[in-house]
């Protein structure tokens, strides 16, 4: 093979997604061609580049930015839009670092404190501001859960599932992400956690039907048993035919079959 032909395959080789025969071709070429093998070596070395750490002040600035943003949101009618338009974010950050900025910050935080204190002192009907912030919060939670469920590490996805349980109400997008996790996540632990999170929302018909459907697709005995237990807990009589079907699968784990028999008895 020539370098030009290898060039087409090299990126997939580097990603480790080549078919075995193509892999053999590329490896044979790399043994002969110094240039191509040097490129592969450099690619590997790129992962050795040191990870630089941002300064510790970065987190403090982030907190300040967050408070400024939220204070800005809740005081929006009083804000001066002209000023906002002119000040770029970068220049605001520079300003925040100056002593004058720091003093202004203290004043602003004090004002927020007083404002909050007054709000908390007297119970008032929820204001439109409050509703806006509430909906922002919900949005943020969704974003965090949805992003976590896409992480590569299983522990991060677990964390995402845990986040989803913090809310009483489950947003439809988060719900469908959790259902997807239950069915397709490669990690058994994450699938079990997703089932646990979903079990709190059995009132939603979609949840029950998905758990029943997941029963047929699961290969892991642990998850299968957990699903069966969940259906028994819900006294879901409609699940009975599905359990019957499951117990007839030829290569079913004996423990799971036993559990399915037990569940069918319970649901009678």
């Amino acid at each position: 093979m020539k370098c030009e032909q290898i060039a087409e395959l090299l990126p997939d080789y580097l990603e480790g997604s080549l078919a075995p025969d193509q892999l053999r071709d590329v490896e044979a070429h790399l043994e002969q061609c110094a240039d191509c093998s040097e490129e592969v070596a450099l690619w590997k070395k790129l992962s050795l580049l040191p990870v630089e750490q941002p300064s510790t002040a970065s987190r403090v600035r982030f907190e300040a930015m967050l408070q400024a943003y939220q204070a800005g949101r809740s005081n929006q009618p009083a804000g001066n839009p002209e000023w906002k338009k002119r000040a770029s974010t970068a220049s605001v950050f520079h300003w925040l670092r100056s002593p004058l900025g720091a003093a202004a910050w203290s004043a602003a935080l004090l004002a927020i404190g007083i404002f909050t204190g007054l709000r908390l002192a007297g119970p008032k009907p929820p204001s439109p501001d409050m509703a806006a912030i509430q909906s922002e919060l919900t949005n943020m939670k969704q974003l965090v859960v949805l992003s976590m469920l896409q992480q590569q590490s299983a522990s991060a996805r677990l964390e995402g599932v845990t986040w989803s349980t913090r809310d009483q109400h489950l947003d439809p997008q988060v719900l469908s992400a959790l259902l997807h996790t239950l069915r397709y996540d490669p990690s058994v632990d994450v699938r079990l956690a997703a089932l646990d999170a979903l079990s709190r929302h059995s009132a939603q018909p979609q949840v029950r039907s998905s758990v029943v459907n997941a029963l047929q697709e699961q290969q892991s005995p642990l998850v299968q048993v957990a699903l069966i237990d969940q259906l028994v807990e819900w006294h879901d009589r409609e699940a009975k035919p599905h359990l019957e079907k499951l117990r007839q699968s030829p290569d079913l784990n004996p423990t799971v079959r036993q559990r399915a028999d037990w569940a069918i008895g319970k649901l009678n």
């Binding site: 987190r59 982030f62 967050l66 939220q70 965090v144 976590m148």
Partner: peptide, 10 residues
């Protein structure tokens, strides 16, 4: 609450 959540992403 909102801060905590953006904090996770941060």
């Amino acid at each position: 609450g909102a801060g905590e959540m953006l904090g996770v992403l941060f």
